[in-house]
Design a protein around this nucleic acid. Structure first.
Length: 262
DNA sequence: AAGTGGATCAACCGCTGTGGT
DNA sequence: AACCACAGCGGTTGATCCACT
């Protein structure tokens, strides 16, 4: 029996119970929001599967939790992602990848869903655009680079979270004291997007080459762009150290961190 | 004014991890 | 140890908005 049929029966008065699995879907109404807010006020967050029974909502627990977490929570920050927040997103995504909830924990008032959407609309496409223009040969290079990036990610993951947070806090403090731009001289200032890595890299020299490549890509000169990205790749070969592509900004602090993460 | 395509965001789906029994 | 229920996560989809032609 379809959900609609059950609803019809219910409407006619001879179906006594809203069968489980016949949950309402789609956009939430103001009344549903009100019921959910009331429920959380009384019972607190959690036990989401009880919501339908206790609050009289025809929504399943997952749907209720999602609505609360992403929309109704009182501590949510509304409005555009600020440049400061964007920097943090870039920085943390470079470090953690698509771990949206982890990233969201560093951005009070922002949800994982919000950050995920922001990332997809603002950054993911840029990478795809660059990649679509690549030839088969370039794609082979891409594979190599992706492997390289994975190695980089593993390396970076070894850095202690505490140090990352302390760096962020340091920068925030400097910003507050000096009233200057967000994250002065920080990692974020020198992090840039590299479409061939499908991720972010850092370092001013690399950034310079990367910008040229991006400009070439923007003017549809795919081969030129690829060559430049290749040059970027080779720079690391020349340097002979994967660390050169790791966060080279804030050298004193970060290189110390890399050398002695704990 | 109407049509179209891209951008945005809310919500759903499937999967995984965890804790209780 | 096995099972179950639940919470949470990341990927994806669909509706709506908006700028552009």
């Amino acid at each position: 029996m379809s959900c609609g049929a059950v609803m019809a029966q219910h409407h006619l008065g001879w179906a006594t119970v809203m069968e489980e699995g016949c949950w309402r879907k789609g956009p939430w109404t103001a009344e549903e929001d009100r019921l959910l807010i009331e429920y959380v006020k009384v019972h607190g967050e959690g036990r989401w599967n009880s919501v339908a029974r206790l609050a009289g909502l025809k929504r399943n627990g997952k749907s209720c939790r999602l609505r609360w977490v992403n929309y109704l929570r009182p501590d949510l920050k509304r409005g555009q992602i600020t440049p400061h927040e964007e920097n943090i997103i870039l920085e943390l995504h470079a470090r953690w990848g698509n771990r949206w909830s982890t990233i969201a924990r560093s951005l009070p008032g922002r949800t994982d869903n919000e950050i995920k959407n922001y990332w997809r609309t603002h950054f993911k496409k840029k990478a795809k655009t660059a990649l679509d223009g690549a030839s088969g040969k370039a794609k082979a290079r891409l594979l190599r680079r992706q492997q390289f990036q994975q190695q980089q990610q593993q390396l970076l993951n070894q850095l202690e979270l505490k140090r990352i947070i302390s760096l962020l806090d340091d920068n925030q403090m400097r910003q507050e004291v000096a009233g200057s731009s967000p994250y002065p001289n920080s990692i974020a200032d020198q992090v840039f997007f590299c479409p061939f890595f499908n991720g972010f890299c850092a370092g001013s020299t690399h950034q310079h080459v990367a910008e040229e490549a991006a400009a070439a890509a923007a003017t549809s000169s795919t081969e030129e762009s690829i060559n430049l990205w290749d040059g970027l790749w080779n720079m690391d070969d020349v340097h002979g150290s994967n660390l050169s592509m790791a966060f080279a900004a804030n050298k004193a602090g970060l290189m110390q961190t890399l050398a002695n993460p704990f």
